[in-house]
Computed example of a mutant assay.
Amino acid sequence: MAIEKGRGATLNGGSHRFNLRQREADGDWLDAVEHLDGPVPRRRTQVTVEHPRTILTRNASPDIGFSQSINAYRGCEHGCIYCFARPSHAYHDLSPGLDFETRLFAKPDAAKLLRAELSKRNYVVAPIAMGTNTDPYQPIEKDWRITRDILELLVETRHPTFITTKSDRILRDIDMLADLARDRLVAVMLSVTSLDPAIARTLEPRAPHPLRRIEAIRQLSAAGIPVTASISPVIPAITDHEIEALVARVAEAGAREVTFIPVRLPHEVAPLFRAWLDAHYPDRAAKVMAIINDLRGGRDNDPDFGTRMRGQGVWADLIRTRFSKARKRAGLGAERLTLRTDLFRPPEGAQMLLF
């Protein structure tokens, strides 16, 4: 199996759910293209501009702690093999595999659309979550700056927001985040899945080095911005041995809280993850999947509310116990953070300000 350097997925297969066609070997020259023409050129990231009519997504899931969110991008160049958002690419007749990492969509009108939403007379203020599907600070944000445009509007309107990322690129916007934090209008969750660079390089190949993320936690915390660290996903026999070290490290850096979720493998993520295991951890692939199946009630994935975020069975209990003890030793868990909603003011130029 050819592994493309700098990419997470080892496959670019189709989706049986949406009839996305997947090429099968049929004896023609394409089956031997690499042998005939040499290695296939590395994929370059392509970005397609998307013009949605609205930008806020509403959520009513009982085990997710936000009611509305914004996703500035579809697809994610970080290439995390475990990403639960991968299956969404099948809706575009693209593969949840390498296409998800290389064929991205950007929404440059996001801030403009949000301004229109916040200007409505019947708008009800609730924290807007960013980074719930794909990372708002993935590499293309450097040039597109869509997340920064959104943040500028949130600062202007004093609107609360939750931000989830695994990139230290968030430090670029520390000025605005500190401004919001002074009024208890922002909370950041920063993901650190492993402290081992060798694991990180294959698990999340284009995400920043783990130590850069630890440093981002430190700088955000020093600026007065409340940071929760996520060590999700915990992957049995791959990253679970790091639970205690991860919790201690993020606490030392200034995280106010830490969370975890056992690895989830919805839809096309499961076969992609299995292929990744075969390529990078063939010595333990069967063991990893056996534990995951035990965690998920005998399946690759558990989609049920209530258990999908926690897992079940002996392995889930063991991971949860270890995490709880590590968290307690680190002195975390005493603080409950809520964001203010009473400071919101509609955008300048909104119709309601004319009266």
Rank of each mutant, 00 (worst) to 15 (best):
A111N: 02
S221M: 02
R42Q: 11
A126L: 09
A286N: 13
L211R: 12
S88F: 12
R296Q: 01
L56D: 06
E101V: 01
I214Q: 01
A126D: 13
P347T: 11
D135E: 06
L98M: 08
R327N: 08
G79L: 01
E24S: 10
N12Y: 11
N59S: 11
R23L: 06
K287T: 03
I70G: 05
F305H: 09
A330R: 08
T164K: 05
E156Y: 11
A251P: 00
I128M: 10
N301I: 08
I64C: 06
L337Y: 15
M1A: 11
P271C: 09
T239E: 07
N122W: 13
V250A: 00
H35M: 11
L104G: 02
R249N: 07
M130L: 15
R327Y: 08
P347I: 12
R115S: 07
A25G: 02
G254N: 09
F323H: 00
L343Q: 12
F66T: 07
R145V: 00
H78A: 03
D302A: 04
G298H: 08
L295K: 01
R327H: 00
V155D: 04
K107W: 11
S61Y: 08
P136G: 10
D183Y: 11
E24F: 15
S324T: 12
P262N: 15
L220H: 09
P233V: 06
T157W: 09
K166N: 01
L277P: 00
R310P: 07
P197L: 05
L353P: 03
L11W: 14
L36D: 11
L36G: 06
T202P: 02
Q219H: 13
E215V: 00
S232M: 02
A25E: 14
S67F: 00
E252Q: 15
R17K: 15
K107C: 09
I174P: 03
T164R: 02
S194A: 14
H16E: 14
T10I: 14
P139A: 05
D317A: 15
A229D: 00
V188Y: 05
S167D: 04
A223Y: 15
E242A: 06
L11H: 13
